Computed example of a mutant assay.
Amino acid sequence: MPTPHLGTNLHRRAPLAKLTVSAVLALALSALFAVSPAWAADGQITGLAGKCVDVAAASDANGTPVQLYECNGTSAQKWSVSGDGTLRALGKCLDVVDRSTADGAAVQLWDCSGGANQQWVVTAAHDIVNPAADKCLDVRDNNSANGTRLQIWTCTGGANQKWDAPASGGGTPSGFVVSEAQFNQMFPNRNPFYTYSGLTAALGAYPGFAGTGSDTTRKQEAAAFLANVSHETGGLVYVVEQNTANYPHYCDGNQPYGCPAGQAAYYGRGPIQLSWNFNYKAAGDALGIDLLNNPWLVENDASVAWKTGLWYWNTQSGPGTMTPHAAMVNGAGFGQTIRSINGSLECDGRNPAQVQSRVDAYQRFASVLGVSPGANLYC
């Protein structure tokens, strides 16, 4: 397996220009006006015509249909979003009949088995998605009558696919297209520092990330980000750059602010291995965190670490021509994210093994999310 890159992606870049006042204002406004789901109370999942996801006749028998019904507060309508990615009522799981991934496959109640047909992601766009099928929970025929059967269907954004769902574990759901169970599957050997909660806490800084476009696009972007992160950190194992001999080299003394934390303080840290004093200054300015004077926050605070990774992904093009975020949401493909992160050292045949390592990770993670990786994987 190719050796992970582990922290040289930002080391050879020219200094970044300061963010303009208008850019900072735009970021602030995007966060302020980001739409947050109105999560339903008491475990109900409400949808079309304000009606509830309901287990027919409140039966806990395997194979009981799941339907739309007038909300009545009974146990047949009390759902929980479990940490393993399942939706549960009456002690059993919401299940796609016969493990089908076809449009029109009905859903039912069944013993929880851990199968892909029982995995659901509640998104910030109010979709409830089965990743294996890459399809949405759907009210059949857009019919709001009591007893209408629920099914999965290609996500259309229609009102019959929009839901207000309960929070996972009684807290506020992240709305992220990657569940905690899927995150753990992607990173089975991760360093405890890289928490799922740290990642989801950081998402508010860039609400467009994995929240733009179709459900497929959102999943592809999440998989692409996490694949590059995996490559940079050896599978989320490394928090700091491993080659300590490089540490004194990341202070650009030509910057007017210098290196107040010390000559050797700006080594690679975090999921994208942020390095150089000018990158710490620019990321800190964008995030409202003094990283120039306290770069150690990136290795001590998981949320800050993830925010620096998202800052680069969403705002910097590096040696490429677009940000990695733009590459994924505009259909340029995964290869352009590699170019934007480390193209000057890897792309155009410079290091095909490193490129292949990133592509392999992306394909694995796309599979975990049940989505096609799309075209243009290489740079």
Rank of each mutant, 00 (worst) to 15 (best):
S357K: 04
G268W: 09
C136F: 07
G318S: 06
D348V: 13
D42W: 03
L297S: 04
Y194P: 02
G309A: 11
A56L: 15
V178H: 08
A14G: 04
G284E: 07
N142V: 11
P207I: 12
G175A: 07
A201I: 02
L236M: 12
G235I: 10
P166Y: 05
I45C: 04
G288A: 05
S174E: 02
A56R: 13
T74L: 10
G147F: 14
M1P: 04
I272Y: 04
I341Y: 05
E70I: 06
V240K: 06
S174D: 06
A223Y: 02
I341D: 00
S80Q: 11
V96A: 05
V81P: 00
G268R: 07
A105N: 05
R358P: 03
G169H: 03
L137N: 07
L48K: 03
Q273E: 07
Y247W: 14
T337P: 11
V21E: 05
D98W: 10
S144C: 01
T3R: 05
P188E: 03
Q182C: 06
W296Y: 07
N160M: 08
S230G: 15
A89G: 03
L10I: 01
Q118R: 10
L236C: 01
D301Q: 12
N72V: 08
G333A: 10
G198H: 09
K18A: 15
S179L: 12
Q77C: 09
S113E: 08
R269D: 04
I289K: 08
D360L: 13
L291Q: 00
D301W: 11
S344P: 00
R88M: 15
W313V: 05
L150R: 02
C379P: 02
N184P: 02
T233A: 13
G309S: 10
R190I: 07
S197K: 12
L310W: 04
Y257E: 00
E232F: 13
L137H: 09
L292A: 04
L287V: 06
A202Q: 05
Y196W: 10
A283W: 03
N243H: 02
G211N: 15
T315R: 13
N228M: 13
Y312V: 06
P207M: 13
T3N: 09
Y250R: 02
T172A: 14
L29Q: 02
F176C: 08
Y206S: 03
V329Q: 01
L29D: 00
R339F: 12
P65G: 05
T172S: 13
Y312H: 02
F225A: 10
Y362E: 08
S100N: 10
G63I: 07
K51M: 10
